[in-house]
Design a protein around this nucleic acid. Sequence first.
RNA 1: CGGGGAGUGGCGCAGUCUGGUAGCGCACUCGGCUGGGGGCCGAGCGGUCGCAGGUUCAAAUCCUGUCUCCCCGACCA
Length: 562
Amino acid sequence: MSRQSQTFIPTLKDAPADAEAISHKLMVRAGLIRQLGAGLWTYLPAGWRVQRKVEAIIREEMEAIGCQEMLMPLLQPAENWEKTGRYAIPELFKLEDRKGSPMVLALTHEEAITYHVAREVRSYRDLPLMLFQIQTKERDEGRPRAGVLRTREFTMKDAYSFDRDEEGLARSYEAQAGAYERILDRCEVRWYKVESDVGMMGGSGADEFMAPCPAGEDEVALAPGYAANVEVASATAQSAELPPPLPAPERIETPGLTTVEQVSGSLGLAPGALIKALPVIVEGRGMVLVLVRGDHRLNEIKLRNALGAGFRPAGVEEIGAELGPVGYIGPVGARIPVVKDAAIAGDSYVCGANESDAHLRGVQPGRDFESEELDVRVVEAGDTAPGGGTIAIEPAIEVGNIFKLGSRYSDPLGASYLDESGVEQAIVMGSYGIGPARIVAASIEQRADEHGIVWPRALAPWQVHLVSLSKPGEPEREAADKIYDALRAAGAEVLYDDRDVGPGNKLNDSDLIGCPLRLVVGRRGLAKGVVEATERRSGSAPELPVEDAAERAIALLDGLDV
RNA sequence: CGGGGAGUGGCGCAGUCUGGUAGCGCACUCGGCUGGGGGCCGAGCGGUCGCAGGUUCAAAUCCUGUCUCCCCGACCA
């Protein structure tokens, strides 16, 4: 059924007032989705058609690498989550059944799949194994946002690999990565594969597939031959201009100057000539003083990974007791461990003197204080990447991620096998997620113009939007009806706008909905014996003879590059 | 979790400060006109003003509580 008069595509002239992201506005306006609650979205018929196209592509590419589809429950007993230590995750929805048994709504399915594999797989002969599902996930997000980009309930394709050893995992991981590249290419989204943090998944390595777009919540650091999430990106800093070195640190009065801007401004120095001192309390280790250059920011994920432990910022009281007044903290004379960011590489810095209204200048790391050197700053545009290129930073949306889990889940859930020599070994796992809704949103973000959505053929809800400008019953309508029948007979996916509304409404809705090819059947064209085709993306508008309009339209469609 | 904003017809909003008959645009229904980029005329339908309690002769408006949604930040497979 694709007569528009009988299809539920509620388009809107205006976007909801609170929508910010392009994809959010357009998906609502084009009648693809509607909101039910915070982070909870209903897919209307056109939106669901698009999502199913993405899912079909994912299915094909998963099956092509020997990954088998299955389906696991969303509602699960809490027990396995307690075993893996993930029951404490704040995003995990927790509930009880009527008997009072603790249950959870799965935010991903490592526990379930590992539970099953642990029971069924016993021999090295059963491995390797790759399984996937396309299933709902539930996450109690602190802040859902941007329409479908960050929601509390969403569909995810999650795949899991099971191997005998690290080499096997590496092969499975590469197979999945290759499939992801083909999936994203087929969906026509621009993407980067970037190094990433392992986060709550745990494990030994991870990559993310990022689609650059304005609404992206992540930032990627890019250079020729280099791509990383800024959460983990590492690069050589641009140099900062330093004053001449001094034989020893010199105390200077800085009354009331507590920020980098104030101190550098008052001394006439670049912010990069200052050292910013950030006291943190490290789990099981007490207070540590972390130093970054005045013009740099601390990267908390890199610091956590470098320390191998969690931490929190120290409180004002704690800092006062251990070091001095907040705003005048520095490493010289500090009696606690000092971590110095690698970008602090000069020999004459200004830092706090650990007393009110005073700083020190001419401070030289190594001479004036001891420290452990780590890379813990946020990289910036203009830095030099490991390959020698210059870093650029772009916002991007994470559309997929792949993790080397190792035995992070197989150990606590007892997933093991007997090897050739009869020795019990832990199964080595990987997990691979991809979000169809985010692919759809990214496609819209990347391709939309001021008139609406611009679908690639692979995702379009319909390939052709046939628009009849005449009223029902008028002779021109017959020509449109015939073309509709011919297109359908030829197997084309066609949405036929046969509604009794004005031409402006139809044309604007057509732009909004964004099918790759539009055919307008109106009095003006018919007088010349033509229907007007318009390629949504290029705007190219050839005229097609009425008699074989359907055939010609299909040929046009096949000629579109995307 | 911290900060800010908003809940009034399907959508977008005014009215709230200064309490007194709930309004506008769009959409929708009916009739007519119009028919190539959201057209026009006329007549209509539709709202316990998020919820609960309080003050008052009288509450959308004042007070208290509460729920929901949005934005910025934190967090985020």
